[in-house]
Measured scan of single mutants.
Amino acid sequence: MLDDRARMEAAKKEKVEQILAEFQLQEEDLKKVMRRMQKEMDRGLRLETHEEASVKMLPTYVRSTPEGSEVGDFLSLDLGGTNFRVMLVKVGEGEEGQWSVKTKHQMYSIPEDAMTGTAEMLFDYISECISDFLDKHQMKHKKLPLGFTFSFPVRHEDIDKGILLNWTKGFKASGAEGNNVVGLLRDAIKRRGDFEMDVVAMVNDTVATMISCYYEDHQCEVGMIVGTGCNACYMEEMQNVELVEGDEGRMCVNTEWGAFGDSGELDEFLLEYDRLVDESSANPGQQLYEKLIGGKYMGELVRLVLLRLVDENLLFHGEASEQLRTRGAFETRFVSQVESDTGDRKQIYNILSTLGLRPSTTDCDIVRRACESVSTRAAHMCSAGLAGVINRMRESRSEDVMRITVGVDGSVYKLHPSFKERFHASVRRLTPSCEITFIESEEGSGRGAALVSAVACKKACMLGQ
């Protein structure tokens, strides 16, 4: 009897593995994704193909990295998701002549009506938060230079001027797309009239992360975010950046690689679950690469896999709870928690219980395998993109072996128990001629924006502006 049951459990697990095998990517698959990513990057950089390229390769006008001589107080704003952060950054000489960066910050959550109302409502709310922060720190009387981390696709015309191309991540505030974001912020500050600010720089969160990590390690020339969304930036040779005049030196390019796949480059790798996630998203047909990796989508992918296993009578005796059938019910943090389970399955059992399920031991094991399959594919897909960037940098610099540091931020990278190990191992397999160091950014977005502002202020002083 026991043997029969054991055989049935083994057969069930084997069927589960057959279904989950769809998520496995072979090294040849990853090399294919990497080569296609490089081709799209090239198209994004070139003037004649930029418009139709899915990977936009947006110039950021960040050319210099901090040298350690900029000092002063800077205000930093960070808008990239449902939370908005205001930070005071003091850049100065530390002990023994070292450079020191001290920060104080406060988080504000953005109400739904500000995210989806008008641009005026959104930026009025942001300036209200700045006003509140300055009151708390008794700094209303000071006109501070301000660095703005704005983590949406922007076409820069200068370091302090950028046109919002399109909202992502659930934002829909009308009247912002096609307009200068810094102008919208300046107008809102003017409307309030109770404080003055000098907006000197606007950067993407990947750029802010790279600059913040450069402060720790001067070989950091790539910034990457794996959180709600997924994106990367890197220092490109100016001669390859056709959208900006000049051939000397390097400029940081914001790849906006989340949109890779929007022209069909990933079609052969998309599964039924991916198509369902895409169809029910706020932007169907867009940001397809990001939807395979980002935390906004990972939990939902797992939920759809679990429903398939229920329908195949391989999980929960073929019956799903009402909660499990509800879109968004299986949160991405559950994926991390399930994979963090120590082996007694308590954590998995508790999560499934909150979803109205009474799982068996085998159910718990199957749910864990589903989570591992989805998150491992995410790590491997992400590795193909980064390997594409790094191999490109090595080739354009004609280096036999390139040493490089990548600064990384984002909740999936930082909080998932195995993502970074799987990701690092896969990147290294795909970049055999590179020695890569990964560092995690601390308060990256805010500190990085302030350091970019410090560079901009120093330049302005040198130019006598």
Rank of each mutant, 00 (worst) to 15 (best):
R7M: 15
A10P: 13
K13G: 12
I19L: 11
A21V: 07
L30F: 07
K39H: 02
E40F: 04
D42N: 14
R46C: 12
V55C: 09
T60V: 00
V62N: 06
R63D: 00
R63K: 04
L75I: 02
D78L: 10
N83S: 10
V86K: 00
M87F: 08
K90T: 05
G92N: 03
G92W: 08
S100R: 05
T103R: 05
T103D: 03
H105L: 06
S131R: 07
H137M: 09
M139A: 14
K140C: 05
V154L: 11
I159W: 13
I159Y: 09
G162K: 12
N166D: 14
F171D: 11
K172M: 03
A173D: 04
S174Y: 06
G175W: 05
A176W: 13
N179T: 03
G183C: 09
L185R: 01
L185A: 01
I189M: 06
I189A: 03
D198K: 01
D198I: 00
D205Y: 10
T209K: 02
M210G: 00
Y215M: 02
H218V: 06
I225Y: 02
M238E: 03
E245Q: 01
G246Q: 02
N254I: 01
E268W: 06
Y273Q: 07
D274V: 04
L276G: 08
V277I: 14
L288M: 14
E290H: 14
G295Y: 10
Y297K: 15
G299K: 12
L301Q: 06
L304T: 04
V310F: 07
E312W: 11
G318E: 03
A320T: 08
V338P: 00
S340F: 03
I348Q: 05
G356L: 06
I366F: 06
R369C: 02
A370P: 00
V374W: 01
V374R: 00
M381Q: 06
C382N: 07
G385F: 07
L386I: 14
L386C: 09
I390S: 09
E395A: 12
M402R: 07
G407P: 01
S426F: 06
R429A: 15
L430A: 05
C434R: 05
E435C: 08
F438H: 03
E440A: 07
S445Y: 13
A450K: 14
V455G: 13
K458H: 15
A460T: 12
